[in-house]
Amino acid sequence: MVHYQTRLDATFAALSDVTRRGVLEQLWGSDASVTDLAQRFHMTLTGMKKHVSVLEQAGLVITEKIGRVRTCKLGPRRLEEEAAWIEQHRQLWSARFDALDKIVEDLNRKEKANARSKRK
């Protein structure tokens, strides 16, 4: 369970940043060097290296250094566990909202019935 939680935490932390999500979108199209990514996102090389490091730790990106160029590409990790976690919680909240809808409907019906009986 601890490994599962740690992995979820790392993935959601990596995905919580707009720049890192943007990097993933760029890499869906094609591999890119860290320098290219830094230029595309108008940031320093050091800043981009930090973002890439977070994505690497989550297993979402892998890098390879050839000579002086570090190239990034999407990692082999899929997001099945994360999607399952989200779906489980979506179902829970959906059931809760459905129950809340029924309560509101019942209250509205009772309120209308009380209003009709007061008019008579």
Rank of each mutant, 00 (worst) to 15 (best):
A95P: 00
A115R: 06
A32I: 02
L8I: 02
H3P: 01
I86V: 15
Q39I: 10
A95K: 05
H51N: 13
S30W: 02
R116I: 04
A38K: 08
V61Y: 11
F41I: 00
I62E: 15
A115I: 04
L37T: 06
L100F: 14
A38M: 10
H42T: 04
T11A: 08
G47M: 03
E25H: 09
G75I: 04
V54H: 11
T35Y: 15
E56A: 03
M43A: 08
S30K: 09
S33A: 09
K49I: 05
H89C: 01
A10I: 01
C72H: 07
Q39C: 01
R116K: 09
L27P: 00
I103G: 02
H89D: 04
L92Q: 15
A113F: 07
G22M: 01
L74Y: 06
S30G: 09
V34T: 14
Q26E: 13
S94P: 01
A113E: 09
L55H: 02
N108V: 10
L55S: 01
R78P: 01
L24W: 06
E64D: 10
L60S: 06
E80L: 15
V2S: 05
D106P: 01
R78G: 15
I103L: 12
R21K: 10
H51S: 03
E56V: 06
V61D: 11
D106R: 14
R40S: 01
T6A: 11
L74E: 05
D106E: 13
R119M: 12
R90Y: 13
K120W: 07
D36P: 04
H42L: 09
L74S: 05
G22P: 06
D9R: 07
S53K: 14
Y4A: 01
L37K: 10
W93G: 00
E81R: 03
Q91L: 13
R77A: 14
A113K: 05
T63N: 09
F41Q: 03
L8G: 01
A14C: 06
T6M: 09
A115N: 07
Q57Y: 08
V69E: 09
L60G: 04
Q91S: 14
K120F: 06
V23E: 03
E25R: 09
T71N: 05
Q88S: 11
K102W: 11
E80A: 15
Q5R: 07
L92P: 02
R109Y: 11
V69I: 10
L24V: 04
A14W: 06
K118I: 08
E81H: 06
Q39M: 08
R68S: 10
G22Q: 01
L27T: 03
M1A: 03
S94T: 05
Q39K: 12
R119N: 07
R119G: 06
H51P: 02
W85E: 15
A32N: 09
S33E: 08
A10N: 12
R40W: 10
L107G: 00
N108K: 06
V52H: 10
D9N: 12
R7V: 03
I103T: 11
A32W: 04
N114Q: 12
L79V: 06
K49C: 07
R77Y: 09
A32E: 06
V104W: 03
H89M: 03
A14P: 08
I62Y: 10
